[in-house]
Design a protein around this nucleic acid. Structure first.
Lengths: 336, 336
DNA sequence: GTGAAAGCGCTAACAT
DNA sequence: ATGTTAGCGCTTTCAC
């Protein structure tokens, strides 16, 4: 009972077979295993197929083979500029491997995320979980039922791709120290974010190593507004430079600083993270590159290779580096 | 041949039926139409089902019913900031209606778009096409085979949601005229974009009506870099204000202007479109709001209502308006 | 190299 | 209210 609106129904493999004067199997093979049959036969079948407008029915194939031909990706917030490039990379890799990409947005809510992944499970071959906010137990439970690849979440035993912002952050702290800064402040992002924990830790460690004082300000949400709202705290900390959890926050901080007449980089230095908006800010933001697109692509590649029977606990670490632009300079005596 | 990694294979409806001592139909009904059978039976079946860890197979159900439970959305470029909110709206609406959302990125390429839509056709209940670059013929051909809803593309007879930026643009031109500008320039975006044609037309019409001179500069691609690169042409046109196809372009123009020491809004006024980045720029950009999120949501709602048997040619127009921020002011004598 | 036939797991008439 | 029986469109042994 294929419900069909619009005009003509999509032809099935049987109709193509009939029209081409061959069997269903031949048509099937022409599409899935062309090397198994004569080149002429393939050509003929293809010819008839295209003339009839035949397109293989993905669902039927999935039922028959047990492979859905679909992978899902779930992210905390599509609108956060960190994710679109990542999704784009995932979609490209999926497409290339012959998979379709199902998209889920958990709205930063672990519960919604849990439901979403549960729902996707039965209808996909595997799932990519980006910046998951779920507990390790929840994640493991899902991994038990379906192949799962994590992005920016380090759960031993599960395949995962990690963007190693820690090294980039360390370089950022060194850069600041080299410029003469003695006191800096880290503005943190989402509490349950692995990346945030990594970055906070990296700032602290580098600060300690270089003998800098490191203050902390919690922004919690990663938004422009949260950034501008934290400016008073940032200025109040007495630091001369700030490292923000991500570019979005840094952008807000930049605006807030400007609104208070604090010049960047002359009176205050700021460094972001991810390099997703940095090039388009004024002044252009010094930031830590993240290559979200690579991560998305790599995650899907890992998933596909896992589906092909390869290792299931690979831990891929992606490099980052500091990219210098125009928001850092030697510290200045603060006017008040 | 259900391939299964992770733990034990998922039980099928038959196994549940056997274990519960009922027929497959009863189990099926217990899940899909519980009101058709005794409450006790339902309870018993459910009990056995959960004990066995049974989960209905989405794919099998889809094949049997002809409804995939999935809708697809294809966009020209996920990374263009106009689309994430739109996708987010679509995903939310789909989720709410019980559908999963398949995502496709055509990379601004009509051919890729065509292939993508063709591929999604058989595995979805319907498709949302945002800012399609395909020809009207191609679109109609797809609409013939699958329910289709267009966003920002006006094809008579097909359901579509249109963001009426023309009225917002007209307001922008009036605003500029009111400020005293006599000559403005429109920086156009993608050639095959319906929105671009609408906006260009609206600028021209309003300019004529108000007796303003209107020049044009082609940016073609909607990117920050394209914006900065067009600044010489913009300045060379002799205009005192610019209206850009979208915020991305406007952002680049702002940066390019700043780089040349042209003050905004004192020496030059700029207005963007879409309101996707405008609030986070410095100075905050005056722009035309677009509400991409609404459009995404509305499109999926239309699609779902279409699938439920309602009208298939609705034309939904979404309002826009000019939002004044800080990039416009009366024209100044240009220093050179 | 190609065809025939048996399913994949589920739903939906049609009985009973 | 529940069971029986065909398929949905495709892949895949197994013959030829």
């Amino acid at each position: 009972m294929t419900q069909q609106r619009g005009s003509g129904a999509t032809p099935t493999i049987s109709q193509v077979a009939a029209a081409a004067g061959v069997s269903k199997s031949t048509v099937s093979r022409a599409f899935s295993r062309p090397e198994m049959i004569t080149a002429e036969t393939v050509a003929h079948v293809m010819d008839v197929a295209t003339r009839l407008g035949y397109v293989p029915n993905h669902t039927a194939r999935a039922l028959s083979t047990g492979r859905a031909g679909t992978v899902a990706i779930v992210v905390p917030d599509i609108a956060n500029p960190f994710f679109p490039p990542l999704i784009r990379g995932a979609q490209a890799a999926a497409d290339q491997a012959g998979f379709s990409l199902l998209l889920g947005d958990s709205d930063e809510d672990p519960t919604r995320e849990d439901v979403l992944v549960g729902k996707f499970g039965p209808q996909t071959d595997g799932i990519v979980l980006a910046s998951s906010r779920m507990t390790e137990e929840q994640i493991r439970a899902h991994a038990e039922r379906r192949p799962l690849v994590l992005i920016n979440r380090d759960v031993p035993g599960l395949p995962r791709v990690l963007i190693d912002t820690a090294t980039g952050i360390a370089a950022a702290v060194e850069h600041l120290a080299g410029l003469g800064h003695r006191h800096l402040v880290y503005v943190s992002g989402p509490t349950s974010s692995w990346s945030n924990a990594e970055r906070r830790r990296a700032v602290r460690a580098a600060g300690r190593r270089l003998g800098l004082k490191v203050s902390a300000v919690a922004a919690r949400r990663s938004t422009y507004d949260a950034g501008v709202q934290r400016v008073d705290d940032i200025l109040g900390s007495g630091a001369s430079a700030v490292i923000a959890f991500d570019d979005l926050l840094a952008q807000g901080i930049l605006a807030g600083l400007a609104a208070r007449g604090v010049g960047v980089p002359d009176q205050f230095s700021v460094i972001g993270c991810d390099d997703v908006l940095a090039a388009t800010m004024s002044p252009p933001l010094t930031t830590v590159s993240a290559h979200g697109g690579h991560a998305g692509r790599k995650a899907v590649d890992l998933l596909v290779s896992f589906l092909d029977g390869n290792e299931g606990d690979e831990r891929r670490v992606l490099d980052t580096s500091l990219v210098l632009r125009s928001t850092t300079a030697p510290p200045a005596v603060r006017r008040n």
